[in-house]
Every structure is written in C-alpha cells, then in structure tokens.
Design a binder for these strands. Structure first.
Lengths: 244, 244
DNA sequence: TTCTATTTATTGGTATGCCAATTTGATGCT
DNA sequence: AGCATCAAATTGGCATACCAATAAATAGAA
C-alpha cells in the first residue's frame, strides 16, 4: 500500500496546529514555510492543505494566506475515524441510534409521495429477492428515503455517511456474503413493512420502535454469524471508541 | 471569494462518474486524460482527485491508476451539502434528533469519570459565564462529552460534525453575537444541569427528553431573534432540503 | 498631516518536466 | 505449451518555475 506523502504532511500540520492551540481565524505559516520545514516541495504541502480544506479545518485565500476555520484538536473532538477501525457492531449501533430517531421524525414530516416511493422499494425487495444486487440496493434506498422524508438535509447526509461507511468497511465484505446466502432478507422485509406501516399511521413512537427493532434483528443476525474461523472476527465486531 | 479550480474540476468529475453509473472497483481514466479533456494541467486534476479521495469516492494507486470505491450518485444520496446552504434551524433540528437519542444511549453507558468531566464543564459554565469564549467552549465540550460517553466513535464523530458545521455557518456569526449579548446562557445552564441529572440517574427516557427540551429552548430563542433587519434572515433560517 | 494612487513584496494558483512504482507483454528457457 | 525474466510503456508522485491575486509599503497631492 502506497502511503501518500500529502497525508503524512497533512497529519503533521494538524498535529502541529493542535499543539499550538491557535485561535480560529488566525493566519497560518505559508506553504513555502511548511515546505522548507518538512523538506519537501511546496506541491505536497499544497496538497496537504487541500486535504485540510476538504476536511473543513482551514480556508485558503489566494494572495493572502491560509486561515484557521475552527479550533483544532479540541480534547473531545477527534479527527475522522478511519474506516478500518470501525466494526460492524459499532456501525449498527450508530445506525440504530440515528435511524430510529430519524424514523420518529419522519413520521411527522413524511408525504404521500414519500410513502409511495418507499412502497415501491418494498415491492422491489419482494419481487427481486432472488437478486442480491437489487434487493440490497432497495434496502439501502428504503432507509435513505426515510431519512430524506425528514426534509432535513443534514439527517440525510449523516444517514448516507453511515451506509457509505458500511460499504467501505473491510469486514462488511465478509459478512455481506454470509448474510446474503442465508434467508434473513425475508425477515428484514417484514421489518421494513412494519416500519412503513407506522409511517403511514404517522406514529412517531411506533416508527421509532419498529426501526429500532429492525436494526436489533440485524445485530442479532450478525452476532449469530460471529461463530467464524476468522480469529480477528470478535475483536473487530466489537471494536469501539479508542482512548482519547 | 476565490473559487478554487480544483473544486470545479472535482465536481465535474463526480458528475461525470455519476452519469456513467460505473461499478465499484472499476478503473477510471488517467489524470492525463482528464487534464486534456478539461484543458487544464495535470496538477489541478490531481488536486481534484485528492479531494475525491478525501471524500472517500476513489482510491489512488501509484503506477496503476485510480479506482472507484463505491457507487457514485445514488439517487437519494447527495454529495456533501455546502455549509452556506444550511440554516440554523435545520441544523438545530438535526442536533435535536441526533443528540436526544445520543443522550438516551449515553444514559446506559456513561461512566463515573464521564459524569465527573461533565460536572466540571458545568462548573466552568457557571463560574465563567461572564466570558463568552469560555462558556461557549464549555457548552460545546459538554455536549460532545455526552456523545463520547456512548463509547461509539461514529456517534461522537457525527455530533462533532454538526457542531463544526455550526461554527462554519455564515449565519451563525450573526446569531452568535445576539445570543451571547443576552442572558440566555443562564437558562441553558439549567437545561444542562437537568440533562446531567438524568444521566446520573441512568434514565434513558429522561435524558432523551431533557436534551430534546434543551434544544427546543434553543430553537425558541433563535426564533425569537429572527425579528431582524436582515432581509435574508427568514429564508435562511428555514432553508431545508432541496429538490433531488 | 492625511488621504490616495502606485509601486513593490508576499502568497497562493497553475503549468511543465522528470522520477519512481506498476503493469504489460515480448522473449527465451524448460 | 507453460513459465520465468526482463524490457518497454503506462501512470501516478514529486519538484521547479512562472503567473495572478492580494496585501503592504511608499510616494505624491490635497
């Protein structure tokens, strides 16, 4: 695996900023200064700053300089957690917490069109259960449709992030096949139907509980599958918050 | 405002990929190909790809090529919402949904050490209420400590993201000063005390409701302040999900 | 003195060129 | 035929050089 140099430099800059406890809005050293300091070309430093910019730490102004957008390294706020460090269990727990509340919220904002689209996804899940590809995609879309129906773009974005994380998770690939081979999808389809029914009734508490139970069932399934030959499986499954 | 070229190119590449509906893992055109196509140097294309890499869309392998990491542009999943497009109300609603559930979850996982640190933050808020800087920082830390006490790094990360969004929000700067000048902080400190009390009791429902009520109060305060001379204020306050 | 216009320096933006890792496929041996 | 080896092409990694926007300094007019 190629360790991209700009990432190293970017992390070093972040560490450096965290150490100094600079105030938001203050000006940072120039690209040239960092280049000389790290003994690299300005190109790499520039790339590192692009990383920090995308991550939201800094703001770059041509001809002026680079400025801090917020306090770096607040003791409780971590940088982005690497995909490899997140286990399926931790991910599902986060989804359970977030999506159950989203379901409750959605019950109060969902429109007829939303309901209709969700129903179409369920029909798709039903008829195309044989196709892993299609039914899995329908699963994802069903959940995201619920998030979208809250009419809150941030809730949809967060929910999307968690699903993207799952797809990127190395361990998911393994679990994915095991789960798909088995017939759990029928159970989950029933869960989905229950959720949609609560949304139809505009029952916030019912929707919350239905979503919670659904993800609880997924967790249970996952747990049952943890009897595996992969020695790292258990530790991975339960990997949780690391020390700050 | 400087529109950074690499952002334009990056967005164009993303749009291009979404259009083609490529499968995950497939190989993308080379940097040189995109450079020629857009009529720019390879440098900007490379910077654009760094953006996509940070955002998690692609994986870059030296000497080999650039590969897709996941499905781009699923109909319901948007790209990241720009900070400028998010109003304080939408942000607070997202926090209310997320943080109230986090509080409920935290009530079951919080440790004595967590409780102690939260108490310290409240004491800081109390004694340093005169200092806007300090009390605001304590506010932030208090909320993030709750998220951290769930022992779930994703929940902490999402919560942190929302607070970072607030800090970056252009409208927040305006509201921020108005709120700080007034004496709402005392009320919010009471809210925080109520939340901590529920956490002490390990009462999940109580914690959920206390957090919900707290952010409801913040929303109310914000709404009261919306009587302003800024013509864009109202629209901004309620800007919500845009059409997909 | 003060304000303004202009020059100069600073700083990020972009392009070009060469280097290193990887892949590909041709070559020759078994 | 099959496989190992090596050379050439491909492709991203990095550095240098010059361009453009901004800010700072300075000279001149009111």
């Amino acid at each position: 695996m190629t360790e991209r140099l700009y990432r190293d430099i970017g992390e070093q800059i972040k560490a450096d900023l965290a150490q100094q406890e600079l105030a938001p809005g203050c000006k940072l050293p120039t690209e040239r200064a960092y280049a000389e300091r790290f003994g690299t070309s300005r190109t790499v430093v520039r790339e590192a700053f692009i990383m920090l910019e995308i991550e939201g730490w800094i703001e770059v102004r041509q001809g002026s300089g680079i400025y801090l957008r917020q306090r770096p390294g607040s003791p409780v706020s971590p940088q982005r957690v690497p995909d490899e460090d997140i286990g399926p269990f931790e991910l599902l727990q986060a989804r359970q917490v977030l999506e159950s509340s989203i379901a409750a919220c959605a019950a109060q904002t969902v429109t007829k069109q939303d309901i209709q689209q969700m129903q179409e996804m369920l029909d798709l899940e039903d008829t195309m259960m044989a196709s892993v590809e299609v039914s899995e995609d329908a699963d994802r879309r069903f959940h995201l449709l619920i998030a979208r129906s809250t009419q809150n773009s941030l809730l949809l974005e967060m929910c999307t992030q968690l699903w993207d994380r799952r797809d990127r998770s190395p361990m998911w690939q393994t679990l994915h096949k095991r789960i798909m081979d088995l017939s759990y999808r029928a159970n989950w389809l029933e869960d989905h139907r229950a959720i949609l029914n609560q949304l139809r009734k505009r029952d916030a508490q019912g929707a919350r509980q239905a979503m919670w139970q659904h993800l609880e069932n997924v967790k249970t399934t996952l747990f049952a599958l943890s009897d595996t030959d992969d020695p790292n499986f258990d530790g991975y499954l339960f990997s949780n918050l690391r020390a700050q």
